[in-house]
Design a protein around this nucleic acid. Structure first.
Length: 323
DNA sequence: AATGCCCGCAACCGCCTACAG
DNA sequence: TCTGTAGGCGGTTGCGGGCAT
């Protein structure tokens, strides 16, 4: 007996979401909350698969999502976390509460892969020339690799211990693993998001679908605007602001207490999970076996060890993920 | 101006896991 | 314990925009 499809193939609409569909979905979730996705198409009249509804919500309509360019810090985090966790995008995304796994996955596949490949190619050329892979690097590659290996082993040990119920972790003493033996956060409260959604609806009504909503991406911008509306004047383009690492991204980072990834200020006392963020009621579930950040944070954010941007030369990348 | 190519991103597909009955 | 189902996740695809010719 084969597995039945999640929804009827007949009469199910595919392709990009229209602003009207977004509004319907947002309105429904505003009223009923996310979950029971099976019922969403039925109750809303949307001709969409339940999966499609869930994906649309979690990746684009959910408040608290940051879109636009990735900051240097985010880029570094992704590179390090990918090296540590592999292609477990949901787990990686749990450390970047404002980014979706899909976003991170796309960013990795389209930007970081190429970047790292290029750098590694250059590194090969340089090594053939007998040059150091990082001229300004103050620690040798061997030192760095040993350090990396040690840190990875420590993280793995912590993971194993954290995943062994009843076995107190020597590394995690005093920390509460967010991923072990813990039910997901209680039913979401819609205090913050309701306001945001209301703003979306309001903005959509004011601007009108024709003017502001050429496609669904514009809807996403509406969310970006409203999500930062409390802190921003509402002028300017978020993406442009992001290009300088300022504006919206900083607004979000400050909102999440997320702006200080430099080693001087990385002493987080709590795991940096969505549950601790401003949008905790809207956040992604803490899935994917998140390692308490405080354990690996020093490694992840120890830019002192990285010596600036040359860190890219030194990250050990799984070749399968590059080629 | 027209055409073709490349790239980025949104969305889909299928497998896996958790959970309820 | 077994089975069916919903939700979650990662890989992949296809469309549309931008750029080069």
């Amino acid at each position: 007996m084969g597995r039945p499809p999640c929804c009827d193939k007949i009469g199910v609409k595919k392709g990009p979401w229209t602003p009207e569909e977004d509004i319907i979905l947002v309105s429904y979730i505003q009223e009923h909350g996310p979950g029971n996705w099976r019922a969403v198409p039925t109750n809303t009249g949307l001709l969409r698969c339940s999966k499609s509804c869930r994906l649309r919500w979690t990746n684009y309509l959910r408040p608290g999502i940051k879109r636009g360019n990735f900051t240097d810090h985010e880029e570094k985090m992704i590179i390090h976390l990918q090296a540590l966790l592999g292609n477990r995008w949901a787990a990686i995304a749990s450390y970047l509460p404002q980014r979706t796994d899909n976003d991170i996955k796309n960013f990795w596949n389209t930007h970081l892969k190429k970047k790292l490949r290029k750098i590694q190619a250059g590194q090969g050329d340089q090594s053939r020339d007998g040059l150091s892979s990082a001229g300004s690097q103050q620690i040798s590659r061997g030192q760095w690799e040993r350090r990396l290996q040690t840190d990875i082993n420590m993280a793995r040990q912590a993971l194993c211990e954290a995943l062994s119920p009843g076995k107190p972790s020597s590394l995690l003493t005093g920390l509460k693993p967010a991923c072990v033996n813990e039910k997901p956060a209680p039913a979401p409260i819609y205090a913050s998001s309701t306001e945001n959604i209301a703003r979306l609806l309001k903005g959509w009504m004011i601007n009108g679908p024709k003017q502001s909503l050429k496609n669904s991406a514009t809807t996403q911008n509406s969310f970006i605007n409203m999500a930062g509306a409390d802190s921003l004047s509402g002028e300017g383009t978020p993406d442009k602001a992001d290009k300088n690492g300022t504006g919206l991204s900083q607004t979000f980072e400050s909102l999440f207490g997320f702006d200080s990834f430099d080693s001087s200020n990385s002493d987080f006392s709590q795991p940096m999970s969505p549950d601790t963020g401003l949008f905790q009621d809207e956040s992604k579930p803490n899935s994917g076996g998140q390692v308490p950040l405080s354990l690996i944070e020093r490694w992840l954010f120890d830019e002192g060890a990285m010596q600036g941007k040359d860190y890219l030369n030194e990250v050990t990348i799984d070749e399968d993920n590059l080629f």
